[in-house]
């Protein structure tokens, strides 16, 4: 039995290629087994008509209630605009040191900001967000290193400034937090 798996669960339509590339990036950063699955949740339950957005707190709890075999961390992938009551939007969120996180692709496409589309850039942003939220589930908090993936980013251009890797410091913390759990 292998308890090291990270499971990425897509809710709604995603390009297969994008999911695979994201999984590969996660694999590279966490050195573990990464599965991709499709999940089904009735999103309408989480829709807030006044804000025309989806409640990220509800979705996080809902994903947390699902369980997948041999999985230590689950990340729900969405393609809708997420919010939490206190914030106008979020890219994603996670239970710190918990089992679950969520991330949305919705705000990562250049077109939403009236810019020329750029699939690779969008994918890059998504990978970073997914790795970032997973980092939180492993107990990592935000990092001040400007290029570290655990740096907090509150707008897309901010995400573009960091890389998809953990800095040495965060990688060290990750290893301590997991007790070498993820080592091959």
């Amino acid at each position: 039995m292998n308890l090291q798996n990270i499971t990425l669960v897509s809710f709604g339509y995603f390009e297969k290629d994008l999911l695979e590339k994201t999984a590969e990036a996660v694999r590279q950063e966490f050195h573990g087994i990464v599965n991709v699955r499709e999940g089904h949740i009735d999103l309408s339950e989480f829709y807030d008509p006044a804000r025309r957005q989806y409640n990220g707190n509800g979705l996080l709890k809902q994903v947390d209630a699902l369980s997948f075999p041999d999985t230590i961390k689950t990340l729900g992938l969405f393609n809708v605009d997420l919010f939490i009551p206190i914030l106008t939007f979020i890219f994603g969120q996670a239970f710190l040191g918990g089992r679950t996180g969520i991330a949305s692709l919705y705000r990562f496409s250049n077109e939403r900001y009236g810019m020329t589309g750029n699939e690779l850039l969008m994918l890059d942003r998504f990978k970073k967000e997914v790795i970032h939220e997973l980092g939180h589930t492993f107990g990592l908090i935000h990092c001040h290193n400007p290029t570290c993936v655990m740096r907090s980013s509150t707008y897309v251009e901010d995400i573009d400034q960091k890389e998809q890797q953990f800095c040495l410091h965060c990688r060290g913390n990750l290893e301590t937090l997991t007790g070498g759990f993820l080592a091959e």
Partner: peptide, 15 residues
Amino acid sequence: ESVRDSLYSWFIEDG
């Protein structure tokens, strides 16, 4: 409660 919870997790993640 939802405001407290959201702010709590946001700040915790920020260290």
